[in-house]
């Protein structure tokens, strides 16, 4: 009788253990699926675009609207000056100077960053880096001393592995200089999930040299 009770207890224990193993395995399976789905979902984002979240999305929209509000403010100022006959010539000259600055018609300077990109970097990564610089607030960018203005600054890979820009074959290392808020630009490039990490992941053993500069000069475009 005692033996039979002990056998039943052992049987119950075995059954309980089996249930626990079954439950644990099920849990493991669920985590496996969740994890693999989350990795599948971020493959491309991790490769060429930064990971983003709700906070970033709203911040971008808020900053854009602030910048648009500032733009309307400065245009209202130009309009007011244009309506005043004593100031209209000055308003026109200011506009010309502003557009010349935007289109590269004047030499410019300002604080910024200098990024050295090693040999072996392909066109897509340079396109992404230039995009990232403008995205982080760069107001003027040059590559190996060539200012990126107008629509003719596409980068082209040539069979020798070199890169062509505006008819010039670029010699590595590729030096990008950007005028803007140097701290924001540097921090954004270096942040977790930022361009630098993605670049290093894509190009094992290579890295970017990022330096803050108090003053960067750029020539006007001929």
């Amino acid at each position: 009788m005692a033996i039979s009770a002990s056998n039943m207890l052992l049987h119950d224990l075995d059954s309980g253990r089996k249930k626990m193993i079954l439950f644990t395995s099920l849990l493991l399976g669920i985590f496996l699926v969740i994890q693999s789905r989350s990795f599948i979902g971020v493959t491309i984002v991790n490769t060429r675009d930064s990971a983003s979240n709700m906070f970033r999305e709203l911040q971008v929209l808020r900053d854009t609207n602030k910048s648009l509000t500032d733009e309307t403010g400065s245009l209202e100022e130009v309009l007011a000056k244009s309506k005043d006959s004593s100031l209209s010539l000055k308003a026109l000259e200011d506009e010309i100077r502003r557009f010349k600055t935007i289109t590269g018609g004047l030499p410019v300077y300002g604080p910024g960053i200098r990024v050295s990109v090693p040999v072996g970097t392909e066109v897509a990564s340079l396109v992404d880096l230039i995009n990232e610089l403008f995205n982080t607030g760069a107001e003027a960018v040059s590559l190996n001393g060539i200012r990126l203005t107008g629509n003719g600054f596409g980068l082209d890979g040539i069979p020798s592995g070199q890169i062509l820009l505006k008819g010039n074959i670029l010699q590595p290392p590729y030096i990008l200089t950007a005028i803007g808020d140097s701290l924001t630009m540097e921090n954004t490039l270096r942040q977790v999930g930022g361009f630098l990490r993605r670049y290093e992941k894509k190009h094992p053993g290579k890295t970017l040299k990022i330096e803050k500069k108090d003053r960067i000069d750029m020539d006007k475009v001929d």
């Binding site: 984002v45 675009d49 930064s50 983003s52 979240n53 970033r56 999305e57 971008v60 066109v123 396109v127 995009n131 990232e132 403008f134 995205n135 760069a138 107001e139 990126l148 203005t149 107008g150 629509n151 003719g152 600054f153 596409g154 980068l155 082209d156 062509l164």
Partner: peptide
């Protein structure tokens, strides 16, 4: 980038003009 190498004089995406300073970025799937 490819259009720029081919000397396109003006470019737009969904009527949003592309300038030299334009950045095209992803925010989630947007």
């Amino acid at each position: 980038n490819l259009l720029r190498t081919g000397s396109a004089t003006a470019i737009a995406i969904n009527n949003q003009r592309i300038l030299p300073t334009t950045h095209i970025s992803a925010v989630g799937n947007s």
